[in-house]
Design a protein around this nucleic acid. Structure first.
Lengths: 159, 159
DNA sequence: TCTCATGTAACTCATGATATTACATGAGAA
DNA sequence: TTCTCATGTAATATCATGAGTTACATGAGA
């Protein structure tokens, strides 16, 4: 498997949650991992965080797996981002935290302003979008295409 | 040396350029590397890019080193960012580029909008700030403090 | 009690950024 | 000319991190 230069967990988790929403029963880490082309343990690790925040449920044993614990209209992208532990948003930053050098202080101040505003913008955008909006968009696209309804994860993500 | 979780080259280079501006003659990679707590070769690699874009000059031999090749008022943070090869700004991104799955398409579209706007904001901010503005800020801070003038890199960055 | 599924610790592996080594090139001083 | 200083750059090594993997424990249902 090739490695990402950036963190794609948010993208991956949203994908999983939307598939769960179109599903009757729970889905196993095994199945989700195949679809996401990763390892079941990785799925469990990520989903464990969401479960602790009350977004999903997990059940052991026969017929067990992962399912949604809350209505999609009450979950924003920002909620999920936070539930993932608020990973770093920016790939660039200052060389040092609180330098003695005045020159460096000036550089840091200028860059920090820009960094802070960009992060605030991202978070604000994330906060405006609920998962139910994304689901609606999926249904719109399906309707536009006029294709038969198929949300089945195994079929869609067949390798 | 401890490692950064993000790219701090922009921050480092700006710092170097502002110190060069307060300097009479050229400064060697050796001296700059000590101040930036890195290796002279790293300095040369980074500065080589800036030289090719016409922002700095390098001279070999006795009395050689790095010096500015353009007025600070004609260099924006964005210029330097670009000269560094426009490194990635965001630390998060989509799992896949152009997925077949409609659900993933919807997720990507939503996230991409936010990502794009945040990047545009950052670049716009970078474009508004010239290095001469930063130098002015340094001088303001010095004046406010009422301290004696000292831009000497070796002194300020004494370990 | 057997199987399935999650829970989690421990470990391995791949990658990319940075650092280091080594040597070539060119400029000025002696 | 020759010595020293400084950049130019290829090749290599190091290190932090994220992701993947293995192994085994726990608990639920058939």
């Amino acid at each position: 498997m090739s490695y990402m230069r950036y963190d794609s967990r948010l993208s991956g988790v949203l994908h999983i949650l939307l598939h769960l929403a179109e599903q009757n029963g729970p889905m196993t880490s095994e199945v989700l991992a195949r679809a996401m082309e990763t390892n079941p343990v990785v799925i469990r690790r990520i989903m464990a965080g969401l479960r602790n925040q009350g977004y999903v449920r997990s059940e052991k044993g026969h017929g067990g797996g992962w399912s949604l614990a809350r209505d999609l209209s009450r979950i924003t992208l920002r909620d999920i981002y936070t539930a993932l532990g608020s990973p770093a948003l920016l790939a660039i930053g200052n060389r040092t935290e609180s330098p003695d050098c005045l020159v460096e202080q000036a550089v840091n101040t200028a860059l920090d302003r820009a960094f802070h505003d960009a992060e605030a913008l991202l978070l604000a955008r994330f906060g405006e979008v609920t998962l139910s909006m994304l689901r609606a968009e999926v249904h719109d696209r399906l309707a536009t295409r006029g294709e038969p309804y198929n949300h089945d994860l195994e079929t869609v993500h067949a390798s």
